[in-house]
Design a protein around this nucleic acid. Structure first.
Lengths: 351, 351
DNA sequence: TTCCGGCGTGAATACGCATTCAATCTGTGC
DNA sequence: GCACAGATTGAATGCGTATTCACGCCGGAA
């Protein structure tokens, strides 16, 4: 146990034991290559004896494919992105690829992360919730590495993006509020630099104004895309009766909606939806739980992951990188109790 | 944009442009190597012009160090482990290492994951919440790759582990329950194969029995370490009045405690802590939120991460792997409102 | 002046594998 | 029995870098 053999058997060792050439060993571990079945078995057996495990690093050097995909996370405090990470891990693992994970500061630049990722010759980069300079995108593309922005787009960027119909989702929440009779509103926005937050807010406001709601009946808070941010923003805005509490509050994402809801109950002893109705966006797992039962717009993560991987086209490395596609998938309004349903068609199962 | 230069500049390209040898370029990117400053600057400039990024894959091949650490996640539905992942990512990124992330089925074997990890010549393996055969441990150790079990230990294994004082934590919750006057109990256990769950439960029961509580006053439910599992277990156990609802319920981890709490409120209209008091373990971010305000045992993630990285000793690859250390760090009881405090010293800030 | 230690440098090599190329072997059709 | 297509095979090479080795150079000590 104290000895350190440091003996990672190589394909040559296996070849020697099996009485074949190193080429044969390589072929034995490369599906679809031409090798007599009897010999293949003999090699596998020898490999087993030596605890041989092929060295993917060396393999990558010759094949120019690492089978590694980088996932860069911009806001690990939002459970949504962890759900997304999980979805990508499952999918990529299933097809034999590895996930190299990075985090960057919430709202920060991911340039440095990209640079580090590039060193590892990843086959693709998935960027969630993070800023990215166009220089970095072309750096990747020039090297044949596709970049996909998940739930985000950068105007004028060459990088493709996959996102939910954010503006439309904002409209759906607004429509739900209106149907429930709300006349005064607040919304809690996230990262001001992020288009996601902007789009949802825009759709929300547009719909309200179409319904004749005045701009002065819609206040805006900044929640920085996190629970605590929204919680504090609500407390700050409404304490001392400085601002009148509106009929309805739209949290630009679920975690902020939850923070707002908790703040309203805890600090102002208000009831949801009786005193204030609340809408969210994402449909994270927590949103359906008993204390929240949040009416929200569900982002179809599975579908978005599919679209992302399609753009990455990891299976066809030689297909050119598609220039700047912007894939938009529709969200779906999930009725729960944080907004009174016009008709009694809300979800009944709460857990 | 449509052309695919596929031109990843190599150190030779940079050398040619800078008028030096490839060795010099390599040295320019290797801190601490002997190279004239003037020449180093010239090389950096040439590299910039060519968008040269050193190829870590090739570097790994010669150095025998990949600077990649594998983190294997066993239960992504428990936010605790995502917090742990985040902590490791931050730490490892800060010291210039990469994180290769894997998931395995909740409670499943991680052998296959290990095998895949080994191919990538990772410098270390961190395993959270997952089973592992001893054969895999020695496979790693024989190759000089340290393995650390996070929050888990495998009796008789060569792998070191870092964990919280689980039994002691269970005792602390039991003590809190007793101090608050509880006389009948339930506990919701997680993965039956996991030692973590067993240890916490054991400490809990031991303490109760020391206080003269009979075994028949302690019922046991299975929650499979997830929110929904605990929720359903509580509903199943207590509906129809089959079992009398106890004074206190110990969720072996916070997420199950939360599931239990929501079930009690939603399905049985009970109040916490008035009707039932609840204790948890982990102190995940959600535990402090208004609807839960869970009294729980905080696991010192930072300290546990430190200990884990110390065992990995990534900086000294040649130091022999320490045989089977079992590092135990104490948890700390965090008083919140889900258990009435004997004296009024609970946390007041809820969000 | 001579000697020596140390720095700076480039040529050459190794890392572990996939793949090309040419050679050998197999079986088929005639 | 012969020619030939296809299947197997191994030697050799390349992937991009770090590192060793040997050499030239400089400055200080003797």
């Amino acid at each position: 146990m104290n000895i350190r053999p440091r003996t990672r058997a190589t394909s040559f060792d296996v070849a020697a034991l099996a009485g074949v050439s190193q080429s044969a060993v390589s072929r034995a571990f490369t599906p679809g290559s031409s090798l007599a079945e009897e010999k293949r078995l003999r090699i596998i057996e020898a490999a087993r004896k030596l605890n041989y495990v092929p060295n993917s690093i060396a393999r990558s050097l010759t094949t120019q494919r690492s089978n590694i995909v980088a996932v860069i996370l911009g806001n690990t405090a939002n459970p949504f992105y962890l759900q997304v990470l999980e979805a990508f891990m499952h999918r990529l693992q299933a097809e034999g690829r590895q996930v190299l994970t990075f985090t960057v500061e919430n709202g920060g630049e991911s340039d440095e992360a990209i640079l580090r990722v590039l060193r590892y010759q990843v086959d693709g980069v998935i960027l969630t919730s993070a800023q990215l300079s166009t220089r970095m995108v072309s750096l990747c593309h020039d090297r044949g590495i596709p970049v996909v922005l998940f739930n985000r787009y950068i105007p004028g960027s060459d990088a493709s993006g996959v996102r939910c119909a954010n503006a439309e989702g904002g409209r759906q929440i607004a429509t739900a509020f209106l149907a429930a009779g709300a006349r005064s509103f607040a919304m809690i926005k996230g990262d001001p630099k992020g288009t996601t937050s902007q789009d949802r807010a825009r759709g929300f406001v547009d719909r309200l104004m179409e319904a004749g709601i005045g701009r002065d009946a819609i206040s805006e808070l900044e929640g920085h895309s996190v629970y605590d941010g929204a919680h504090e923003a609500v407390v700050r805005e409404f304490r001392d009766g400085r601002t009148k509490i509106p009929d309805a509050i739209f949290g630009i994402n679920d975690i902020m909606a939850m923070g707002a809801m908790d703040a309203l109950r805890q600090r102002f002893s208000l009831k949801v939806p009786d005193d204030v109705m609340i809408g969210g966006f994402d449909d994270i797992a927590e949103a359906r739980r008993f204390p929240y039962r949040l009416t929200t717009v569900r982002q179809p993560i599975g579908q978005m992951v599919d679209e992302t991987l399609a753009i990455l086209h990891l299976d066809e490395p030689h297909r050119p990188i598609e220039p700047g596609r912007d894939v938009v998938v529709p969200g779906r309004l999930i009725w729960r109790r944080s907004i009174p349903a016009p008709r009694g068609d809300g979800e009944t199962k709460g857990a």
